[in-house]
Design a protein around this nucleic acid. Structure first.
Lengths: 338, 338
DNA sequence: CCTTGGCACTCTGTCCGTCCGAGTGCCAGC
DNA sequence: GCTGGCACTCGGACGGACAGAGTGCCAAGG
């Protein structure tokens, strides 16, 4: 186990490196933080920290920089979450309050997060699986063509075109609409399949084909759209990444374009509380030099989706975590109100 | 007026520079293109081209690179549009054919464009102004709460919550729904306001307030959502921009985040045919070192939105223009089918 | 009048050697 | 266990020399 002072040294190294982006040496450390010991002592501590794998030197006779393992320790043990100041909190609330619909809420959240953390923000749309059906609407567009519109309690709307095997009268449509809604309105998406299982049986034989088609499209929508969507922003902040540009930034941009990758990334993060994935802890290779800070958010006590930021491993963890947490909290409030 | 050979020299300079990214000199030119004259002659021609502002040298005794004006001339007079090959066209069609809804069409188009041109792709969602109403649906969510769903002929769906001044019965709602649709279904958005102007008059006094509220929300939707949306992709291609990275790439990323900027950019482009804006021709400063190639697309003969790519001024114009044109054409077809 | 080969000139990028400073590891002494 | 001292290493900056690419200009030739 590392002594208290060695932990302090590590903390100091992380803080300085995050600030200056330059390898930090023993002398500079003792000057900026009053550790009460001489550079020589710090050097000894650094040697130990390096042996243990918490820090490394880019080349002989350069200062030390934290390793992923070093950041891990820093996040777990040495750093708290820096709370937002009151004015910041007010600003967040004001900014989010202006949103008019779900898209707008998500868009504003992305902007806000990117601005607060000066990093790349990722916000997942509230998931369908955990949300409930508010209403299902069926519209007849042509004799054998129906549009299915699904409205969720989070304000999300999905629509699908259904080509019916046989013409379907207005009366039957109204009937189906009524029965469908009485069964599934207010219910969770996950429960829908079994709730509608025997629905076709109540209809005339000639309509059953169409009813089944509509239902299977509905179920498809639930599953397909479960491939959740997300929105990203603040990519311009990538330019602050480092000096060895193209190489670092390219894979990150590529990862950000692949929603699948990002969704997996968020999915792997723990369900409750804030998750910080540092460098190589990220399964996706392109993000091996980045850290991902994410947290769930939701209208009630339960998380319906996640949001977070992607930044260089060399980031201000306490500040970033504070911002992410605060934004998640306020977004949850906004969703609960609407 | 420039002689035929001088134009050829300019064309050769543009082609070589686009290929190599390096200033091109007289000797290299005569070697790669058989102009039938000596380097010395080419030098004279280059001096003239430089006087006229078509090319420039980064520093004395370096080769020449085209100026914005040079690219302009190249695009207008010297280069055609390179048509896609048959396999490419098939690939485009196959890829777009798999789309399931409007979002998917747009998403696929963005990917495709980015991949074909290896640049940043921008696709605007089909505009509401020029499209027509397919159906308006009204759902009663609570006694005094109505959800308005608007479906366009391009498959776009917009929804709005309406808080009514007074409770509104199901019968009245059905009545309104029927009257509304009979008036505006199939009509252009621009015509809707006057078509519904006197609609409240046909209702009972106690319902008129609600009807007006619903109508004004509908009109708002038309206007508000006219702030068109767009999707971008291929930002990873920005890493191929140039060597002087952060400075070049940053403003571009910023511009891409500002949908307003992009929409204005597309909006300024000519309505018919392909538009190429080169370097400083772009009003937005951050894009002064980029070129934007855009074109309208639509389901019928008429353009309902635009798509295009953003890339370095040093781009393969014929190839890019060919790809943009081909994609626009196929997207139009897909929209027409659905 | 246009083209051409020749020539002197001007830059830039690169290579190389030198030097300085920051930082280290180790050791002896407190 | 801390500290000061010391020798060592290495990377980055500086500067001069050099090669190469490219130019502009000029005089000669078609």
């Amino acid at each position: 186990m590392l002594s208290e002072r060695r932990l302090q040294v590590l903390r100091a190294i992380v803080q300085d490196y995050v600030g200056t982006e330059e390898p930090v040496g023993s002398k500079a450390l003792t000057e900026r933080h009053n550790l009460g010991v001489s550079p020589a002592t710090v050097r000894n501590d650094m040697a130990v920290l390096e042996d243990e794998g918490f820090i490394a030197q880019p080349h002989t006779s350069a200062g030390r920089i934290p390793t992923d393992k070093g950041y891990r320790l820093f996040v777990d043990k040495l750093a708290g979450v820096k709370p937002m100041t009151a004015p910041e909190r007010r600003a967040i609330q004001n900014f989010l309050d202006g949103a008019v619909d779900l898209d707008d809420v998500v868009a504003r959240t992305v902007r806000l997060l990117a601005q607060l953390t000066r990093q790349v923000a990722v916000v997942q749309y509230p998931s369908l699986t955990r949300s409930t059906v508010r209403h299902v609407e069926l519209l007849s567009l042509a004799p054998a063509r129906v549009m299915l519109v699904l409205i969720t309690d989070t304000g999300r709307v999905e629509q699908r075109m259904v080509d019916c095997p046989a013409p379907f009268g207005e009366a039957s449509l109204a009937d189906l609409r009524a029965r469908l809604n009485s069964r599934i309105a207010g219910r969770r998406f996950a429960d829908v399949p079994q709730l509608v299982e025997d629905l076709p049986e109540g209809f005339d034989v000639e309509d059953r084909g169409t009813v089944s088609t509509v239902l299977s499209t509905l179920l498809e929508t639930l599953v397909e759209e479960n491939e959740e969507r997300l929105m990203i922003g603040g990519t311009a902040n990538l330019t602050r990444f480092g000096h060895d540009f193209p190489l670092t930034i390219r894979p990150v941009l590529e990862a950000l374009e692949e929603q699948v990758v990002l969704l997996k990334l968020l999915g792997e993060a723990g369900d409750s509380g804030m998750t910080v994935r540092i460098g190589h802890e990220n399964a996706y290779e392109g993000l091996n030099s980045t850290s991902v800070v994410s947290v769930g958010y939701g209208s009630g006590g339960e998380a319906v989706a996640k949001l977070g930021v992607v930044g260089p491993t060399r980031m201000d963890y306490p500040g970033t975590m504070g911002a992410v947490r605060a934004v998640a909290r306020y977004v949850g409030q906004i969703l609960a109100e609407s």
